[in-house]
Write a protein that binds this DNA or RNA. Structure first.
Lengths: 296, 296
DNA sequence: AAGAAATTATACAATTCCGTTTAGATGGGC
DNA sequence: GCCCATCTAAACGGAATTGTATAATTTCTT
């Protein structure tokens, strides 16, 4: 029984093998060589006392035990990355890397000008933009600052409420010229509708809240909000998008503005410890200001 | 500018130097040698690009930048330790180490028989008992299972409410025989009272809730609940302790049972991911059962 | 005031670790 | 059915890391 705990480097190698699926792949990812990776895995297996992978010629397969350890290795990687970001931004100046998490639509349609102005002001600031509808774990520091459409529930977070983002049914003027505008929700069935592919809990809640909208059939289904918005702009049909975004394009018309109105509360969220970190503070404040302008 | 991120081992060395305060101390703690530690720190300073410590002959002093990185290094250590615990308990059997956090009183007076029975049942189970009135961060895995007297607010936790623990004023029969029992709260001023040294927010809230108790003077002040309980048992005077604990000793009498009654809600808390880990599940269930018996 | 006991810094030897190379095996593509 | 690509495993030489020993400096104690 080896009483000494494994070297932390081994965890990094372990995670790389898990993610790459082979010793050789991990070696490429870490800029090491395959024998080194093999030795690391051997050493880690020696230390924990059981097999982590079943070797085969087309790669390694993780054992159940290895999968049980994976979340810990991922947490280590997230923390190490956060440490590097923190180190890169030491000092009073706004410099270094800030990791921002937001939804696809916000990230593609709303954030770019805000971030551009921010970068103009702080040339040494670098931004990592994580676009995902999953909410990143801020406590584990998967991201530094996040734009959230659901109320933050965790402790130890700095939260600033922005306001409500209004959603609405929209279509391109060209589409409405050809097919006419529906006069009520019931008439939507005769139109080309754009919607989601897989139903998430949030979407299911939304559909049930709009009367008569529960069982419409979508002619174009995509889980990508970006693709939906692009389809609306291309005149495919009627879909849901943010009213504020649609208003920027005079050719996008809101459909049934009274019948369908949905509001999303919006927050900017940051880990409490980053409050005094200049670069994170700057990004946080810029997002608050920029998104408030977008909501109004 | 070195683009490659530092080796994770350097973080461990870094944390050890922060905690030990010297290269030599860190070398002892990690079972390495002082030149090795010095090289690690040099390498890390090289990687981050600024000084982490100011060298002196009586040790190293951390720079502000180093202190800013400390929480990240601590999180790494906590996660690495959790990974080792997880690895030690692989398999279906209840074996390995579980880290339990509780208050001093609970840990010293209530948990021992519960844990003893648990150990009797699972001889391969090992327990790390962290006794502190600070609440350990379960998300960072400073502990696996915790007994909490404040309502858990974090997400991603498995929470089981136990009930309310009653507190009351108590004294040893010997003390009351000599000095008599006070008939009302006002009469407490003439007695030897046992209480806290520094006022924490929780204590301040408690004092304000008991009328006439806000400005009593304590003859013996200690931040250690254990010491307070020991003083009560030794007949020093009147102090606060759990009614359930006092009842086990026929010589401990409750004072002013009607006027002073305070209740603490109690929960057992565990990280969600540990729900399916046999050893943590076993400890969690045993604590729930054992503490419910204590409350009743 | 002087010596003992810390500490960091430096030089050198030994060990460990890593990379290169090779062999062996498996799966996919023509 | 054969060949090529990809993988793991093993052997060996070199490089990097580590440990040992020592010097130099400061602080605390006697």
């Amino acid at each position: 029984m080896s009483s000494s705990e494994p070297a932390w480097d081994l965890y990094r190698t372990f995670l790389a093998v898990l993610e790459e699926g082979s010793l050789s792949g991990a070696a490429r990812a870490l800029a090491l060589t395959q024998p080194t990776i093999a030795r690391h895995i051997d050493a880690l297996e020696q230390a924990v006392g059981f097999a982590l992978f079943t070797r085969s010629q087309r790669g390694l397969e993780a054992t159940e035990a290895a999968l049980a350890l994976k979340p810990y290795a991922e947490a280590l990687a997230a923390t190490a990355a956060a440490l590097v970001r923190e180190a890169s931004g030491q000092g009073e100046a706004v410099r270094g890397t800030v990791r921002v998490s937001a939804s696809q639509i916000i990230g593609a349609e709303v954030l770019p000008p805000i971030l551009a102005a921010l970068r103009e002001r702080y040339p040494q600031l670098e931004i990592e933009l994580v676009l995902s509808n999953e909410i990143e774990n801020l406590l584990r520091r998967d991201a530094d600052v996040a734009v959230r459409m659901v109320q933050p529930m965790q402790e130890a977070l700095v939260v600033q409420r922005i306001g409500t983002v209004a959603l609405g049914l929209h279509a391109h003027r060209r589409y409405l010229d050809r097919h006419g505008a529906p006069q009520d929700i019931a008439a939507l069935g005769a139109h080309s509708l754009i919607g989601y592919d897989r139903e998430t809990p949030a979407i299911r809640a939304m559909r049930s809240r709009i009367p008569g909208f529960a069982d419409v059939h979508f002619a174009l289904r995509s889980d990508s909000d970006i693709a939906q918005l692009a389809a609306i702009r291309a005149g495919f049909g009627i879909g849901i998008c943010q009213v504020a975004i649609a208003k920027r394009d005079p050719d996008l018309m809101q459909v049934l503005p009274g019948a369908f109105d949905l509001k999303l509360d919006t927050w900017i969220v940051m880990h409490e410890n980053l409050r005094t970190t200049p670069r994170c503070r700057a990004v946080f404040d810029a997002l608050v200001q920029g998104l408030k302008a977008h909501v109004d």
